[in-house]
Design a protein around this nucleic acid. Structure first.
Ligand SMILES: [Mn+2]
Ligand SMILES: [Mn+2]
Ligand SMILES: [Mn+2]
Ligand SMILES: [Mn+2]
Lengths: 227, 227
DNA sequence: TGTTGTTTTTAGGGTGGTCTAAAAATAACG
DNA sequence: CGTTATTTTTAGACCACCCTAAAAACAACA
């Protein structure tokens, strides 16, 4: 292709890989494995190896055969910028265009790759410099700094504890729509009434007085700030 | 590639070709030539021939070797939808994010390819269903219908004629910034004072009383609605 | 420590998109 | 109408990204 003139330095695909590696590195602390990336990207391990060579060539990751990968400073910055864009666009889609929180991921997945000077900062300003996206995930600022939110999984609360829903661990449409159905949106206040050790489910009361029983799965995937 | 599951039916590249063909077909009425497309896309004629085969295969164009191409109904609809998206995003960038009218083309060129059900219609609603983009170009509606605007090139006016700037034929940064410098934005009122046959330049008076002499080039590229 | 099972890489190939150079078809003109 | 100039297509190659199947490396464990 002779490296097209104004073509961006990193392709959509490369960016998606970087984001996946960043995400995996967050959870594991150790070097990220080829298989983990393949699972995250829903692609083959062979394709991943292929891409890892390219990313290493561009010095976006540290890569040693069979030893897994880590993002370089540059790669990390790129991934952070991408997450910033992704989450800002999600805020736009929900706050300005009126999409539901379970509808925006795929669109943001595309919008995050739009390149152009000033776009992100203008978008940020337009949205009122939000610190969290529609799923409660933090939005890094222009310098890559992350806001920290004091939150725990719902099923770590004890009976009598009160809290506010601040985020979700899962982002699937099924889970988010189920929460909608239960009337549990971001910001919802609740009190934990009882814990059932048998199946790790919990009983809660919402701000409007409804009592709900939530499975272990829901309790793990819902984050709350204890108040 | 085994036709990836959720991959869109048409690639970014194919969409850009369709748009280029649509644009060229508008001006020429005859079948669009390979060379014209190559020039418009800034690519080689060989690459164009290659792509024409693919587009014909997908029945987006009618293509006969050496005979040029025409969009099929389907291709035409796709191109129209793309132009709609492009221009709506331009409105967004200017009206909502505060970009200047000469800065938005490249960004819209990327944003127009974002796919997702409901996005365009929600964007349209959010923007107040605009009928024209920041350059005065008409935005087709969801059914592909175009608004018609009664406008002529500035240099067709006669002394004494008054008008309002409604659009531009050229979209280059240089031209648009020159207009900014002259204080000639969309909606600017003006009166043609005199025509100079020697070099086809014209003298005008703006709403705020300034008198300007505009070259033939500017006179050709500025559209006005006579009032 | 050798064998087995898992992970990762290589080998080989495919598609979409690009290019240059050469061949073929069409258009222009004397 | 034949020759020349132009346009268009083919030939052949390259890169990014993907795949499957086989080989190689590593990890686990008896
Ligand atoms: Mn993405
Ligand atoms: Mn999110
Ligand atoms: Mn485009
Ligand atoms: Mn425009």
């Amino acid at each position: 292709m002779a490296r097209r003139l104004h073509a961006p330095m990193t392709s959509h695909t490369e960016e998606n890989y970087l984001k996946a590696i960043f995400k995996l590195a967050e959870k594991t602390a150790k070097a990220v494995s080829t298989n983990a990336i393949a699972a995250e990207m829903r692609t083959s391990a062979a394709s991943v190896t292929d891409m890892l060579k390219r990313l290493a060539e561009k010095e976006l990751i540290h890569y040693e055969k069979y030893r897994g990968v880590q993002l370089t400073e540059q790669g990390s910055q790129l991934a952070t910028a991408l997450i910033r864009k992704h989450r800002l666009w999600e805020v736009f889609l929900v706050d300005k265009l009126g999409f539901a929180w379970d509808e925006v991921h795929d669109l943001a997945e595309q919008l995050e790759h739009v390149q152009g000077s000033g776009l992100v900062e203008r978008l940020d300003t337009f949205l009122g410099r939000p610190k969290f996206d529609p799923h409660g995930d933090p939005i890094p600022d222009a310098e890559g700094r992350w806001a920290f939110r004091q939150q725990v999984a719902l099923n770590t609360l004890q009976p009598g504890d009160k809290g506010v829903v601040t985020g979700v661990d899962e982002h699937s449409t099924e889970f988010l729509q189920y929460l909608d159905q239960l009337g549990l949106a971001l910001g919802a206040r609740l009190e934990l009434l009882e814990r059932y050790p048998y199946d790790q489910s919990v009983r809660i009361r919402t701000a409007d007085g409804r009592e709900l029983t939530l499975s272990e799965k829901v309790g793990q995937n819902l984050y709350v700030k204890v108040s």
